[in-house]
Computed example of a mutant assay.
Amino acid sequence: MTEEAGLWDQDAELWESLGYEAPVRVNLMKRICDLTSSAVGVKFSPSLRANPPPLVPVERIRNGLNIAPHRLNGCYLLQLDEKTILKVGLRVHMGESEAMILVRNQTSVPVPKVFNAYMIEDIGFISMEKIDGMQLGRNWSELPREMKESLAQELRGYIQQWRQIKGSFFGTVDNGPCQEIIFQHPWENKVYRYGPFATRRGFNKGMVEALAKSRPNLKLETEQDIRFAEELLMSGTDQEEIKVFTHGDLDMSNIMIQDGKITAIIDWGAAGYSVPEREYFALRWPALDEDWCELSTSILPPDGYEYWYNINRQMKLYTCI
């Protein structure tokens, strides 16, 4: 086995979960390079279609440095040079590039500039600016309290800016399916699409469908499931229907800092128009640090957190994903 094959070979289980009849070992990087070489049927991100930039050359992809070798979500982060990162893989979609372009155009939020973004078959490519800084979580525990509070307020200001952007549907910016974490717990790790949805009632029906598909027999299993599904169907229908732009994955690893300031918000793969409560839930749900948990309520109101936490818990009751 060559050094390159040892670096890039992926477990066939991922491919099989996406509907492929894969051999025991599948070299995803080889497929990415083959598709790049043939460049047949390229579909550019909507904002770039009028004047599409050149594709990333296959030689640059082969020579790229994998800066996140332990990622398990079907994509690579390749550093092509000192200023350029390529995110490429099966789980990369144009809703992410469109979200970054939208935020850069309509806010002052520091977001990597998108140089190019396109799909070749089911592989997504996003070439973007490499931002200086380190992940907030890397040295959070060592930061003085005053700096933590300052960073929390800076983040609050950025979130308030992008929450001014409203949509007419629930889904990704390019009218793709919803990327909420509650839709990411399918039984047997199958991939399903939910949405986009024009109304909250449609969104709620999507949640019920996701609940059923998180069960071993792909249907509601118990009386408790049925009662919970009825609760989901009525969720938020007595409130004003707002579809607010949402990052959706504000984990500390997706916030870059340098010299006590935020230099970038990264990883917009879960972004889209969603319910207002989703942003706080995604910010708070994975957090373990006590200071971050406390400061999170100064960043966003915690309204609805327990309810959405329970939805997510019910979705992963059988899968534990």
Rank of each mutant, 00 (worst) to 15 (best):
P53K: 11
N66D: 15
D81M: 12
F44R: 04
L65H: 07
V88M: 03
D34R: 07
K43S: 08
L77G: 00
G74K: 06
L80G: 07
K83Q: 14
R62I: 12
V56R: 02
S38H: 11
R71A: 14
Y76M: 06
H70I: 04
V88Y: 01
L90Q: 13
Y76N: 03
E59G: 01
K83T: 10
I61K: 15
N63P: 00
P69Y: 03
V56F: 01
A68F: 06
E82F: 01
D34F: 02
V58F: 03
P46F: 03
G64R: 09
G74F: 02
K87L: 13
L35S: 05
Q79K: 14
L86P: 07
I85K: 14
G64N: 11
V56K: 04
G74P: 03
K43R: 09
T84C: 15
C75Q: 12
L78V: 07
P69F: 04
S47F: 06
F44M: 07
E59M: 04
T84W: 06
M94V: 13
R60W: 01
V88T: 09
G64A: 08
N51I: 02
A50K: 12
M94H: 10
A68E: 14
R71Y: 00
P53L: 09
I61E: 09
N73Y: 08
Q79W: 00
V92W: 06
S47E: 10
N63Y: 04
V42A: 07
I85L: 13
Y76C: 04
G89K: 13
H93N: 01
V92S: 10
P52V: 15
R49H: 02
S37H: 02
Q79L: 02
K43M: 10
V40Y: 01
D34I: 02
L65M: 11
K43H: 10
T36G: 01
L86N: 10
L35E: 11
D81W: 08
L35P: 01
L35Y: 14
P69R: 06
H93E: 04
K83E: 13
G74C: 03
I85S: 11
M94T: 08
V58I: 14
I67S: 03
I85E: 11
R91W: 01
Q79C: 00
G41K: 11
L90T: 03
G89Y: 14
L80N: 04
N51K: 14
F44T: 04
C75L: 05
L80Q: 07
L72F: 00
N66A: 07
R60S: 05
C75N: 11
S45K: 05
L72A: 15
V58W: 05
K87W: 13
R62M: 13
T84A: 10
L55V: 11
T84D: 15
L48T: 03
L35N: 13
E59H: 12
A39W: 02
A68N: 15
L55H: 05
N73K: 12
L35Q: 13
P52H: 03
